[in-house]
Design a protein around this nucleic acid. Structure first.
Lengths: 197, 197, 197, 197
DNA sequence: TATGAATGAGCTTTCATTCAT
DNA sequence: GATGAATGAAAGCTCATTCAT
């Protein structure tokens, strides 16, 4: 078996096991048994159990970052609202298509150790910065209402995260990611209050 | 030392240590050394390390639940918007006044094991249900716009959680919880988009 | 169980197991199973497997050193020849009464690592120095023939070691340590050659 | 590279490495790196690490056995004492000319496992038998004093071994093997005691 | 046949939890 | 009740040996 395949196998098994039992409950033995590799191979492929988690996490955050495109404000570009909607839907689709990795991102990778916490912080900070920038663009173009864009970005990211958490814990009758996205954007875009004028 | 005092001491030390080093990095040794009790006493007071975390968590979630009052829609009650604002501000104040417990809630208590995950889920589900109910009331009263209240509740809770996470990771120049609350509510209430009419 | 007893139990089991299977073939598992202690206890009592061997070795070399008394040359002392004979017989008795430790000294403790080699070297060097000193005394008193006492000490120690090695490997019909001692001393004292005058 | 050359290269490297680091500390990796062969080749050439040691050991013991000639008692033969002296000197010369192999014989090959111990035992037993036989011849010829020849052989072999051990551990100012041999034989032949008649 | 990647036994260490005193 | 020594599960690591290519 070539090294790349071996690495993928271990990662695949770890992904499955971490998602099922949780990072701390999962043992290296569980993983190597599932992957069909020896302990020696495991530790030659990854430095330790933590590194496998780190890689799984990275693979999801990279995928997400690739789906977060900056809003294109040039003249011929698609409507900005559609672009934002597209962003949200792509992200939700990526997450719902990889629920085990999402569970790892939202549940298993939290509070492992200071290094990991920093890693997560950086990802969320980067995402917030991107959202904030998009909102500023929107303000410049007269689409986004004057408001505190930093705090607004918390609402956008937080709403998405919370939605995914519910998605993870809900055993049945899940809303499709399109409906979820549309409704989330509706609330965020138009607000909760009845417009008084 | 009487049992109640002992319990408080252990909880106090655990709160400090968990917040500083994280749940997994903190050892029972760290806690009992700080609390000045023996290992045996620790395990007679609490079933295990997890239970200490559970209790700390409960103390925060109970405090939060006590601050989440249902919106009073009777005739003589204060304006509903003010009540909602009050809810948010009380919650933010409770959290910012207990940053170590907040860190434990948002960081340390995540992904410990399936039991714990369920516990957290229940807290968040309860909170979501309360928010959803309030929003429904608001719709009945013509204050809240027709929208998917379930998904709207994700936005409200998620925005609060994300704001607190940033609060935790930000080393300096933190926004006061009043300003934070006002701006969050502004965004959530009035939406991001410029009103087209 | 008190620490001293625990240590003795582990040492006792290790002594048995090392002697039976050899140091390298013996596993820590073998030892703790036989001693009825846990792995944790083993590693709290001894730094590692090597240290147990070291202690066993020390206990034998200390016992031997205590039996190697300097020859007393004062007027009222017993005949010097008797003293030397006493030394040899005490050593042989100690060794034959502790054949498992002797096996550890002569077989298991050899070539473990540089630290251990040095330890052994020091023991043998000390023993050689003591023998050499005794021989010099004997020369001063006119009992020992003029000869290279350093090299003579090799013969004395080497003869004893070789005798013990044969003792270890011989499965049956062992010479008693008294007869062995007498004959060894006879050969060393009187030489192999027929006296030409 | 032809198999014979490969075998010699591996043996040569192993001899060097074993002598430097000791059998247990030396890894198969050390050897194959030094020999410039692959792991697979190593294990096709030798059954295992132990077998390399065994072969090195054999090469020394065979060389020694070839140098231990029986004493020739026919009429025209050289003086028997000279023959014995020649034996000892040849052995000492062989050993001092191959100090690395001597170190392996005396230090590294001890206590490897029961099989190996038996091998060593057989070599020493053979040597002892040879010495014993020579001494008996000497007795028959009236050169060797009546004494327990078995035990006398322990003294002869043991003295030689001890002398070599000191030789190995002494870092500087080594006695030449001729002087060593002469003095050893003097002590063994003439004994330690002043002759009382 | 030659190679080196894979295997797995076993040492060492840490720590949550248990239990004898 | 109070204590801390003892337990044992599991991570991490090394290395002799095997085996697929």
């Amino acid at each position: 078996m070539n090294p790349a395949l071996r690495k993928r196998r271990i990662a695949y098994s770890a992904r499955k096991i971490f998602s099922q039992k949780g990072y701390h409950t999962a043992t290296v033995d569980d993983i190597i048994r599932d992957a069909g590799v020896s302990r020696g191979t495991f530790y030659k492929t990854y430095r330790n159990k933590r590194e496998v988690l780190g890689e799984l996490l990275d693979s999801l955050t990279r995928a997400l970052e690739m789906n977060m495109t900056r809003v294109d404000v040039s003249s011929g570009a698609p409507p900005i609202v559609d672009q934002m909607m597209g962003n949200v839907e792509r992200i939700l689709t990526t997450l719902t298509n990889n629920l085990d990795l999402t569970r790892i991102l939202l549940r298993q990778a939290v509070g492992i150790d200071p290094d990991f916490d920093r890693k997560l912080d950086e990802f969320y900070e980067g995402t917030l910065a991107l959202i904030e920038l998009s909102l500023k663009h929107g303000q410049d173009m007269g689409i986004i209402r004057p408001c505190n864009v930093e705090i607004a970005s918390y609402a956008v990211l937080g709403a998405l995260r919370q939605a995914m958490e519910v998605f993870l814990s809900t055993k049945s009758k899940r809303t499709s990611s399109e409906v979820l996205g549309k409704n989330l954007l509706d609330v965020l875009a138009n607000g909760l209050f009845v417009r008084t004028i």
